[in-house]
Amino acid sequence: MMQHVESHPFPLMFATISGAHLYGFPSPDSDFDLRGVHLLPLETVVGLDGSNEKGGKQAVEKEGIYDGLEIDLVTHDAAKFFAMMLRRSGYVLEQIFSPLVVFTTSEHQELKQIATDCITRHHSHHYLGFAATQWKLFNKESPPRVKPLLYVYRVLLTGIHLMRTGVVEANLVTLNENAKLTYLDDLIAQKQTGPEKGTLSAADLKFHEAEYERLTKELETAHEQSTLPEMPSARPALNDLLVRLRLRSKR
């Protein structure tokens, strides 16, 4: 996995593992989703190509199999990633706070501190939208797969936990220690021991639909009752960090 990091065309601020491994239910054949932040050189961002996605390489994507592991790497330039942090994207926060760290720097540690001031009560909309998308995907398939159903539960419980505590927790096993939804243990076991595209042979669709609706309402209520701020306050700190990173890259 470090081979992906070492061969990256730009310096990295951090690289962490996302996807099923972070969520706590990888299948034996799950690939590794590597996510992170890179830093474009100063000459690139101040030139005409700096505002061009292709010329500036604001996103770098690489796929490959290394030592038998299928790895999917996606990184964004710091400026683009910092801008995403100021929106309602729980996805980028999960990357920052992922405990599965492949590569880190002191700036990554600083970013974790700053990221806490990016969390708002409106991040609930990210998780509600993601859950709705996964629920539609789950219902479209025949036979229904375990993976999208687990994603539904994962994002709803992550959103509820975030609204109540202000803490980003993406691991479904950890989340279920508090939620205590006994049926999740069976679903996770089925996903972990079976193939990536494992299906539900006898899914109780009515039960899961009722649970989806119940947890959706619970997240909506958690949003209404949340004491998290309305807006992020991290913009000045993110700007300061970005300027320091850019200037240092010139030295």
Rank of each mutant, 00 (worst) to 15 (best):
M13I: 15
Y91C: 06
K206G: 04
K180T: 00
I17Q: 09
F207T: 04
L200W: 11
S226V: 10
V173G: 07
A189W: 05
K191F: 04
I188K: 03
L100Y: 08
L93F: 01
I96T: 06
F32P: 09
S106I: 06
E224S: 12
D77M: 06
A131W: 11
V92I: 05
P144S: 08
P41K: 05
Y23Q: 13
A79P: 02
Q109E: 06
V60E: 10
S124Q: 13
C118K: 01
G198Y: 02
P195A: 13
T104Y: 00
L93Q: 02
S7N: 14
F10N: 09
A115C: 06
L175S: 08
R145Y: 04
K54I: 11
I114D: 01
A132Y: 11
V168K: 01
Y212D: 00
D31R: 07
E196G: 02
T133F: 05
Q134F: 13
Y91M: 08
K54Q: 07
I160V: 14
A189R: 13
W135E: 09
L157Y: 12
N52R: 02
H208C: 05
L175H: 09
V74S: 15
H223M: 03
G198S: 13
K62A: 10
L205I: 14
R164C: 04
T133I: 14
K206P: 00
L42Y: 13
V101A: 03
L242G: 04
S249P: 08
F207G: 05
T199C: 07
S18F: 14
P229C: 06
H126E: 02
K197G: 00
V173E: 12
L12A: 15
S124D: 14
E224G: 03
G68K: 13
V101P: 00
E53Y: 05
T133K: 13
G55P: 14
T227D: 10
R251G: 15
F81D: 02
A15G: 15
R235C: 02
E177P: 00
Q109Y: 02
R246G: 03
L22N: 13
T174K: 15
F82K: 01
E211A: 02
V46K: 12
I96L: 01
L245M: 15
A203F: 04
V152W: 13
E230D: 12
L48A: 11
H125N: 06
K147D: 03
D31I: 06
A170D: 07
E218F: 09
Q190K: 07
I160S: 02
A170N: 11
L40N: 13
R121Q: 08
S106V: 07
E94A: 10
V46N: 08
I119K: 01
L247G: 11
V101M: 02
T44P: 03
T16C: 07
T227N: 12
T116E: 01
G159W: 14
L111K: 02
V155F: 10
L247Y: 15
E230V: 04
R214Y: 05
G36P: 13
L245I: 09
P41G: 07
M163R: 02
T116G: 00
K140S: 11
H122V: 10
T165L: 06
L93H: 03
